[in-house]
């Protein structure tokens, strides 16, 4: 399996910063001996430095959520096989005991989910849920923990936090629930935060509030943020490096500016061409990506995107493309495509 892992070609690497999280050749398969196995994540590598926001972008079934669950060690031990390497601050997580992993979760790495209602315990007040985290991981006691919990709720913008401590999840609005969830995630000042579609269930004005909050956290406290989303608009404003996933593999990785300016993978380009932009002239006909995510071929037989790809050629269904440094653009970029879209680099440049 060819997977580029060298950090020299890694886009988004700021000099002098060691990655906090390094995911290497991560592979997750579901299923057991009796049923046929499904490879949800197929050799994904990326890393995240402190204060950096890395995006994992893709549609349903691209493996973005499974990747995050695997990093957090939240996949069921039965039924899911995880291979590869996930290093957090140099320490391998995949071989850690479940107890050690549970200590890391909450204390050093935290996750927020798409559906805040089902992620909160419905029968325990949110204040207790926040203080529990503090008591478990920080050894804080009653009064101090309550005080800290109040501060955290205030920090994420929940009005009247002292009163809100005794509220239950169902008493809060969707935006407030997501804030409460973020407060829990931040309780122990984690160094890594994974946000899995944190604003998908929210209205756009509330989404703006939550994204602004996440942005503030990253820039002020140096938290490393992994942002998982299907929304290219969210990525454009938030992520320094973007990984585009398709059918369990990274197909393109670049810094956000060059990626949106000159998408190289036909899938990235297809996504950008298929969504209407609020700020564009009306009347442009959208260019859809044909078929659906179900119309794939296995990566072993070629490029999984080939059946839907307008650029597909002879090699695409015969030869699996590798994720390699892209010489067609000026920025450092990784690309998995035989016939990419036009780049910004001419022959003279090369």
């Amino acid at each position: 399996m060819t997977t580029a892992t060298t950090s020299t070609t890694q886009p988004g690497r700021r000099s002098g910063r060691e990655p906090l999280l390094a995911v290497e050749d991560l592979r997750v398969t579901f299923g057991s001996r009796t049923s046929r196995t499904v490879t949800a994540v197929d050799g994904v590598s990326f890393d995240v430095a402190p204060g950096e926001t890395v995006g994992l972008v893709g549609e349903s079934g691209c493996g973005k959520s499974v990747t995050s669950l695997a990093v957090m060690g939240l996949l069921p031990a039965r039924g899911a096989q995880v291979a590869g390497s996930v290093r957090f601050d140099g320490e391998e997580l995949l071989t850690l005991s479940p107890q050690r992993m549970a200590e890391k979760r909450g204390a050093e790495m935290a996750m927020i989910f798409q559906d805040p209602l089902s992620s909160l315990n419905p029968v325990v007040p949110i204040g207790v849920q926040v203080t529990e985290v503090l008591e478990r991981h920080r050894g804080m006691k009653g009064g101090a923990a309550r005080k800290r919990a109040t501060y955290l709720l205030e920090r994420v913008g929940i009005p009247d936090p002292t009163r809100r401590l005794s509220d239950y999840a169902h008493q809060l609005s969707g935006g407030m629930r997501q804030r409460a969830l973020i407060a829990m995630a931040l309780a122990c000042e984690p160094r890594l935060l994974i946000a899995d579609e944190p604003t998908t269930a929210l209205d756009v004005t509330i989404q703006a509030q939550i994204l602004a909050l996440l942005n503030e956290l990253v820039s002020e406290s140096g938290t490393a943020l992994v942002m998982i989303t299907h929304d290219l608009g969210v990525v454009a404003g938030l992520c320094s490096t973007v990984n585009v996933l398709y059918a369990g593999r990274v197909v393109e990785r670049a810094d956000r500016h060059p990626l949106f300016a000159t998408p190289r993978h036909p899938y990235t380009g297809g996504l950008l061409a298929s969504i209407p932009r609020l700020d564009e002239e009306r009347g442009r006909r959208l260019v859809p990506v044909p078929g659906s995510v179900a119309d794939n071929i296995p990566w072993e037989e070629g490029c999984a995107f080939a059946p839907r790809c307008p650029n597909a050629g002879d090699r695409c269904e015969a030869e699996t493309p590798a994720l390699v440094p892209d010489r067609g653009v000026r920025d450092p970029r990784l690309l998995r495509c035989h016939y990419p879209l036009a780049g910004d680099r001419t022959e003279e440049d090369a």
């Binding site: 004005t205 290219l232 608009g233 454009a236 500016h257 949106f260 969504i275 700020d279």
Partner: peptide, 9 residues
């Protein structure tokens, strides 16, 4: 509040 898929914007 609508995000635009264009980092420059």
């Amino acid at each position: 509040a609508v995000p635009i898929p264009d980092p420059t914007v």
